[in-house]
């Protein structure tokens, strides 16, 4: 083994002593630096392509989680402003009798506001007609074949959980008896989540004593109804008028008024659906002389 001093590479950088231990250097092969050969070019190209792909995927996550929120926030604001205009226009709607009329809404048109006091007094979304992708970009969407707010049957609403305003991001945190308030042109409807399966056993002695929980536990054909559950996307029964008996032909008079929320589960996946069932417990006609009045359900959570 010779010392490295004799070879160009490393000359003057490694002392003679260390030269004894250094591996024997080979003469440099290939073209001089600055002109990579074909292999190097290919390897570099593949590396750059992979890095680029990674950046694109990262950017997609940013798009999905933040940019769609921005776009949806604008659409939601527009829908809310349009709805406010309509509600304040005396020539539209029920007129003198102050009665809500539903069923003449176009796809993507707002017709109600949903408030969830548990998520803060200012948490509200304008609910639009229809559950197509463009409608759901505006806000929570009403399944067109289901009941309207306050009607007997099952007022069912789908909403995004991630991105696009994510109106239903936290609906798994709603607890039994928590209020979901639906505001229409002339009425406030207060729905409350029905008990969870595990709460039902000791309901009358336990949580059922809470005055908020009056009328929340349903019997009869609704016996098996639970506040929250996770189902497969193919389970359309959850939005049936009576989810526990989807083939029922019960008349409107025998049906309770339910509100069902559906969203994706787990977050970032469409494997399953998270379902929240609630039942109408109170309704309050709006008093035109007190436009700022809100149902007492807003005071429950501080």
């Amino acid at each position: 083994m010779g010392t490295v001093e004799h070879l160009g590479r490393g000359a003057g950088r490694i002392s003679g002593d260390l030269g004894e231990l250094a591996p024997s250097p080979r003469p440099r092969s290939g073209p001089p630096p600055g002109k990579p050969d074909k292999t190097q070019r290919v390897v570099r190209g593949v590396g750059e392509a992979l890095i680029t792909l990674g950046m694109v995927v990262l950017l997609f996550v940013v798009y999905e989680v933040y940019i769609t929120d921005l776009i949806s926030a604008g659409k939601q604001r527009e829908a809310a402003a349009e709805l406010d205009d309509r509600w304040s226009d005396p020539t539209i709607g029920g007129g003198e009798e102050r009665q809500d009329h539903f069923g003449q809404f176009g796809e993507g048109e707002g017709f109600a506001k949903m408030h969830i006091p548990k998520f803060g007094a200012d948490f509200h979304f304008t609910v639009v007609e229809g559950t197509t992708a463009p409608s759901l970009e505006i806000g929570p969407g009403h399944y067109t074949d289901t009941a309207y707010p306050g009607e007997p049957g099952n007022f069912s609403v789908a909403g995004h959980r991630v991105g696009k305003g994510a109106p239903f991001n936290d609906i798994n945190l709603i607890e039994s008896c928590d209020a979901i308030v639906v505001e229409t042109q002339y009425t406030w409807f207060v729905y409350r989540m029905v008990p969870l399966e595990e709460e039902k056993a000791g309901w009358a002695q336990g949580k059922g004593k809470d005055p908020r929980c009056e009328g929340v536990l349903l019997g009869g054909v609704y016996e098996g109804l639970v506040g929250q559950r996770i189902v497969l996307p193919t389970n359309g029964d959850v939005i049936a008028p009576i989810p526990t008996d989807p083939t029922s032909t019960a008349s409107a008079g025998e049906s309770a008024s339910l509100l069902t929320l559906t969203t994706c589960h787990p977050r970032f996946s469409d494997k399953e659906r998270l379902i929240v069932h609630s039942v109408l417990t109170n309704e309050y006609p709006k008093d035109p002389s007190k436009p700022d009045w809100r149902p007492p359900a807003f005071e429950e959570i501080t």
Partner: peptide, 20 residues
């Protein structure tokens, strides 16, 4: 990417369906 490609490709991907 953000305003043309992603909005187009997004509905084809399996993670934002919320309806039954």
């Amino acid at each position: 990417l953000l305003f043309v490609v992603f909005p187009w490709v997004e509905p084809l991907l399996p993670f934002n369906n919320v309806t039954t």
